[in-house]
Structure formats: structure tokens, C-alpha cells
Simulated scan of single mutants.
Amino acid sequence: MKIFCSKDALLSGVNAVQRAVSNKNPLPVLQGILIQAENQSLQFAATDLEIGIRCDVPAQVTEEGTMIVPAKLFTEVVRKLPDTTISLEERDQAITICYHQSKIVLNGYDPEEFPLLPDLIEPLSFSLPTMIFKNMIRQTIFSCAAEENRPVFNGILLQIENSTIRLVATDTHRLAYIISEITNSEETKFSGIIPSKTLSEIYRLLRDEDEDLMISYSNNQVVFQFGSIYLVSRLIEGQFPNYKQVIPQTCETKVYLAVREFLDAVERASLLSRDKSSANIVRINVENNELRIDQTTELGKISEQISVEMEGKDVRIAFNAKFLIDALKVIDSERILFELSGPFSPGVMRPSDNPNYIYLVLPVRTS
């Protein structure tokens, strides 16, 4: 195999696939990136057997072939290369990288041992604008669980029904829900739990351009295709909780307030909120069209007042400050409706101009 291409092309290829490289699997070949040269292009591929990514970049191919390069080392080498035409040549699993009058030789792996990324058999497919899906990921993914003891909470529920697409994420302490309209002429239906790692990669790779994202699925796998990227992922097995039962249909108190003002106040109060148990709690009191945050800790005191519009009962309630901050940072609206029903019931945030987004957060019981 022998090819010529630019440093930028090599860099875009390795950057696209490197996050799918396995760091834990005992198979050495999974710590590599497969590079295949054919039809005047290079195809990069990597997989950890749960997620796989392919990407095509332009190249001048003088001899077709396949090689597997050590991912971490090859990526670091490419980043240090000069901005010039680079040649890659593979002979007996040794990869020679030439530039100017210099060369680097890396030991590769046997391509025969690399697992091929699957192409789905008779998949069902639909498409939607990339910007819609990217924004949906941004407004939900932070609510996934970080711990891996209950896999269904490490993913996001993706549902397609009629002309709507829905994402739901929860770690059992909070829940983010968003729904968008799509064109679904074939009335495709789908419901599956996508690993958060997969969707964070989609978010990283999607460009802020008006192009379509194609989503295909069959059995226990889902494929995302956009631009030159092909990403395949397993679905998480298990039963996602019934989110419809969790979202309150009524509330005792409605609070209308400015997102930026509320976010700034919570962030300031949270600076003093770390007590000995490392709980980051903010205590909120709503009465007389005023929302007040009073904090007294070993570090000091803070008192924040925000003018709000309220309907219903006065309420005192406490929340994990991080859970409020995470949501307020991704809400695009200037104002929200914060629905409360006493100190022990969940609070629900809704953007004032977007009925398709809901964020639910459980309160913290304090003495």
C-alpha cells in the first residue's frame, strides 16, 4: 500500500475515529486505527466493539491496500508533522511515513485481526437536520448517569413516532426531555436507548452546517451517517423508566423568572454551598413575587433576591445547585416557568417560549 495526502487530511481522519479506539480491550489490534486505501481516498476506522466510526478523506492512491497503525502514537506523530504532502507506505505491517527528506517507521498490526464494522441488514432509516439533533443532545445528555451500575441510565432514550423525534435522559435525580418535529414520510417507528458515549461523539463530530443526519437501525444496533462519517453503535438493553409517570401534570406554585439572573444567583450561592458532606445545596424561598436564596455555611453568608412573577402558594425548597446550573446553561430562552409543589415534590423547568423542552429535578431534603 502506498498513498500521498496532506497533513490536514490525515489529521481529520484520525481525529474523527480516535475516540472509538479501545483502551480496555485485551486485543492489541483494537488499540489501532484501520486505514484502507482505495478509489483515491483513505478510509479510517476504529472500534471498541461497542461503538465504531468510519471516516473517508481524499488521498492520491498509488497502491491500494490496508494497514493498522497504533492509534495513540500515530495520532501524536501526525499532529507533529509539517504542513506538507505526506506519503504512507505499508510493507509487512511496518508503516513508513515520509515528509520532505525525512521518514518515520512505525510497527503496525495484522489487518486480518481487525473486526469489520457491520453494515446493517435491511435497516429502517430516517433523516433530520443535523442542527436539530445536535441541539437536542446538548439539552439532554448532561442528565445521564455517570455511574455504570445501571446501564439504562447511562444512555438516552431515542424515540421516533409519526413526525416527532424525542430524547429523554435521567440519572434518577433529574430528567431532561425534548421533542422536535421531523419529516417522516414512511412513518418509521423506533425506540432504543443510545449510549451517552455514542451521542457525545455524534455531538463532537456534527458540524454547525445545514446538512442531513441519516439514522438507521436494526435489531440491537443503530447507525448515524453524516458528511464523510459512518458511526455504528450497540443499543443498551433494558427497560427505560416510564418518564410520563414522573412528570407532574399539575403544580401548586408557578414562578416566572429570567434564566440569566437565576443562573448567576445560583452560581454565586453555590460558591458557599459546599458543606462537610460535599453536598452542593441551595435553599430557595419564594414569596411575595420574590425568589430568595439565603446561604450560611462555614465559609460565610450570601443572600440573593430576584424579582419574579408567581402564582399560587409560597414555597421553601432546596436543590442540588449543580442540577439547576446544568439545565439553566442549556436553556436557550430568556425566561422560564419553574413549577413547584412544596418542599418534597420535584421542580419542573419549562422555557417560556418552547413547550417542547422539560427539565425535572428532585429536591434535596434538608433538616
Rank of each mutant, 00 (worst) to 15 (best):
residue 290 E to A: 14
residue 69 V to M: 01
residue 65 G to H: 01
residue 61 V to N: 01
residue 39 N to R: 12
residue 54 R to Y: 04
residue 100 H to T: 15
residue 324 L to F: 04
residue 207 R to Q: 14
residue 72 K to A: 05
residue 205 L to H: 05
residue 348 V to L: 12
residue 25 N to V: 08
residue 322 K to I: 09
residue 259 V to R: 15
residue 49 L to K: 05
residue 273 S to V: 07
residue 357 Y to N: 08
residue 278 S to V: 12
residue 58 P to A: 07
residue 270 S to K: 10
residue 266 V to K: 10
residue 192 G to K: 02
residue 111 P to V: 00
residue 151 P to I: 04
residue 162 N to K: 14
residue 123 P to K: 04
residue 114 F to P: 05
residue 328 L to D: 05
residue 177 Y to H: 01
residue 121 I to V: 11
residue 148 E to Q: 04
residue 311 E to P: 07
residue 308 V to G: 05
residue 270 S to G: 13
residue 154 N to A: 03
residue 124 L to T: 14
residue 338 F to G: 01
residue 24 K to H: 00
residue 23 N to P: 07
residue 263 L to T: 12
residue 199 L to H: 02
residue 333 S to T: 08
residue 119 D to I: 10
residue 315 V to P: 05
residue 126 F to C: 10
residue 287 E to S: 13
residue 124 L to F: 14
residue 307 S to N: 14
residue 103 K to C: 13
residue 343 P to Y: 04
residue 123 P to T: 08
residue 39 N to A: 13
residue 362 L to W: 08
residue 49 L to S: 02
residue 235 L to Q: 07
residue 16 A to Q: 03
residue 180 S to R: 15
residue 274 R to T: 13
residue 239 Q to L: 09
residue 35 I to S: 00
residue 80 K to R: 13
residue 229 I to Q: 05
residue 91 R to Q: 13
residue 115 P to C: 04
residue 124 L to W: 13
residue 119 D to L: 11
residue 169 A to M: 06
residue 10 L to E: 01
residue 339 E to N: 13
residue 70 P to V: 05
residue 114 F to K: 01
residue 54 R to C: 06
residue 52 G to H: 04
residue 292 R to I: 15
residue 367 S to T: 14
residue 4 F to T: 09
residue 220 N to G: 11
residue 82 P to Y: 04
residue 331 I to Y: 00
residue 320 N to S: 07
residue 13 G to C: 00
residue 147 E to Y: 08
residue 321 A to V: 02
